[in-house]
Design a protein around this nucleic acid. Structure first.
Length: 573
RNA sequence: CGGGGUGUAGCUCAGUUUGGUGGAGCGCCUGCCUUGGGAGCAGGAGGCCGCACGUUCAAGUCGUGUCACCCCGACCA
């Protein structure tokens, strides 16, 4: 491809709208342009990268017996009503009506429609397992699209759905997908980590893993152990219970004055105690029910764990007004004692306390020597806290480490949630009708491209891994006007093309500096410069973008060198 | 959805306080010159100052409304 004809509008300055580095560089290097919030054009270079990624995905999915199909983006509301998600999914679903006033939505995910497809045509255990996948645009009306391609409203996703006869067969499918995913991200040149995760709204009964690309800009936090293989999203992470320090004998509960001392920090300072000696009392509204949640003062509540425990669709911290109706002291003076018939959810660590400090349910007063089980009864005791770095690994007790990551893929065991709701059944060898056991497996394709940039860049631009670079080589004649240089460069470029190498030639009438800056910015792995040395001494310069290694060799040797470097690039990814 | 911010040339941004013929740098076009890391000179094109209504002799500038975009939070297969 000639640079003079390539639509890659590079920018010298970073557009003000971009915050994260992948967004900045993809805009600056002329890969993407914004159409509306969270919706982007993919220009030629981006399209080539996406093609590379999807090709890798196809190969690995097909190897695992996946069959590629294309399903409708526009889906009828009836199917979503059948699964119950038409009402559950909320504002995030892009909804539309046709001219007959019938309801449709733009698919944010395809469980309903694929289950509908399969239930109509698959009847026998002989046809299972069945693995169907597609690579398509997905639509989610995010409350707040951000970070460029990392959180858009329209994005490219690969989703595969598996249909098995029983849990055991699903386990095998799940394992094979897990391995396929590892291969895919490895081949894309990413540093990633599969972690145990929460199933979220998609539901399902089995396990789930997220594939996280390690990057400081990631929205997700993960905890992992480097002594064993334990790794989990913070939403899911557990830790070995802390050692019980010789429990103190309970003392009589007393009320003390704490004028205007509301937060854990204020009260612990005022009473000269540690936050770990306090009980944090929070009032939540779980759908229509008001509940009390207790956590040790120095711990953080994990709302995902609480939501899973309560099974509430809508879980929200109660307002100040609601708190005052329950406890006259209002926020800052809440305590679990004497709250009547409200359900009390307590973290396990709270139950070990014997002389705790909590609000007195009275303004400007707290109680000391509060003892769970004696002074109040707990309805449900469970792990409700956010695990922090340094705590003991639940498997091997080594200290956990924390990292941030970008979720590029997730594998789920769905079980029979959708097959039961939609009546997707088969007959087993005994002629008995059973619901299929399903799994679903997604990869954010456009997000993977952005995540790769997050992980592979320097101060001057993108550094693509060889396997997904839009072009492998860029040929730069320093002066394309110079007839000799042009001839040598063109011949060399044609030669590369004949070898099946994906090459660009910078035939623009620009100064060398401009060409170098653009080549670095768009991140082509190998650059071959042809200047006056090529004419005088027959030497060209072959430079590797990632390492900076440079070879001054003859034009004749250069093709082989380039091929060797490409091969090496593939090996390293 | 709550809080904050920004809309002026393709990009980055002055100008708005105090109303009076719309600017700079970069990019773009033409010519000269230059050619190993975003050169130089000369000339040029390009703006519904987000949109609407209002105040005024006069609005980029003041008022009201509205739309878009960005950030923080909440939320998020």
């Amino acid at each position: 491809m000639k640079m003079s004809k390539l639509m890659a509008p590079t920018l010298r300055q970073t557009p003000a709208e971009a915050e994260v580095v992948s967004h900045q560089l993809l805009l600056r290097a002329g890969y993407i342009r914004r159409s509306s919030a969270g919706v982007y054009h993919y220009l030629p270079l981006a399209h080539r990268v996406l093609q590379k990624i999807t090709q890798i995905i196809r190969e690995e999915m097909n190897k695992a017996d996946g069959q590629e199909i294309v399903m409708p983006v526009m889906q009828p509301a009836e199917l979503w009503a059948e699964s119950g998600r038409w009402h559950v999914y909320g504002d995030e679903l892009f909804r539309l009506k046709d001219r007959h006033n019938r309801d449709f939505c733009l698919g944010p995910t395809h469980e309903e429609i694929v289950t509908d497809l399969v239930r109509n045509d698959i009847r026998s255990y002989r046809q299972l397992p069945l693995l169907l996948y597609q690579i398509a645009n997905k639509y989610r009306d995010e409350r707040r699209p951000r970070f460029g391609l990392l959180r858009g409203r329209e994005f490219i996703m690969k989703d595969l759905y598996s249909f098995d006869r029983d849990e055991e067969a699903l386990d095998r499918t799940y394992q094979s997908m897990y391995h396929a995913y590892s291969n895919i991200f490895k081949r894309c040149g990413l540093t990633f980590r599969p972690v145990e995760a929460d199933a979220g709204a998609i539901g399902g009964t089995g396990g789930t893993h997220e594939f996280m690309v390690i990057a400081d800009s990631g929205e997700g936090a993960i905890l992992f152990c480097h002594q064993c293989d334990y790794a989990a999203n913070v939403e899911k992470a557990e830790s070995a219970l802390t050692e019980t320090v010789s429990p103190q004998e309970p003392l009589d509960m007393l009320t003390v004055d704490t004028p205007e001392q509301r937060t854990i920090e204020e009260v612990s300072n005022y009473l000269n105690i540690s936050p770990s000696e306090m009980i944090k009392t929070m009032i939540y509204r779980a759908d229509e029910e008001v509940i009390v949640v207790l956590i040790r003062g120095d711990h953080q509540l994990n709302e995902v764990k609480l939501a899973n425990l309560t099974q509430a669709l809508d879980l929200e911290l109660a307002s100040e007004e609601e708190c005052q109706q329950i406890s006259p002291g209002g926020q800052g003076f809440l305590g679990p004692q004497g709250l009547g018939a409200l359900k009390i959810y307590a973290d396990k660590e709270v139950m070990k306390m014997t002389r705790a400090v909590a609000g007195a349910n009275e303004r400007n007063k707290h109680v000391v020597n509060l003892c769970p089980g004696r002074d109040f009864q707990v309805t449900i005791e469970a792990d409700l806290r956010m695990v922090e770095a340094g705590e003991a690994c639940p498997k091997c007790r080594a200290p956990l480490e924390e990292a941030r990551g970008i979720e590029v893929g997730q594998v789920f065991k769905l079980g029979t949630k959708y097959s039961t709701a939609l009546g997707c059944t088969f007959l087993d060898e005994k002629g008995k009708e059973k619901p299929m056991v399903m799994g679903c497996y997604g990869i954010g394709v456009s997000r993977t491209m952005a995540a790769t940039v997050e992980q592979n860049h320097d101060e001057v631009g993108i550094i693509w891994p060889m396997s997904i670079a839009p072009y492998q080589v860029i040929v730069v004649p320093l002066s394309y006007k110079d007839e000799q240089q042009r001839e040598i460069a063109e011949k060399f470029y044609q030669n590369l093309l004949q070898q099946g190498i994906e090459a660009l030639i910078d035939d623009r009438d620009e100064r060398p500096g401009v060409k170098f800056k653009d080549a670095d910015l768009i991140g082509i792995p190998i650059r071959v410069v042809i200047g006056s040395k090529a004419i005088k001494e027959g030497l060209v310069e072959v430079k590797v973008r990632k390492t900076g290694e440079q070879h001054n060799i003859t034009v004749e040797e250069a093709t082989n060198k380039v091929m060797a470097l490409i091969e090496q690039g593939f090996k390293n990814t």
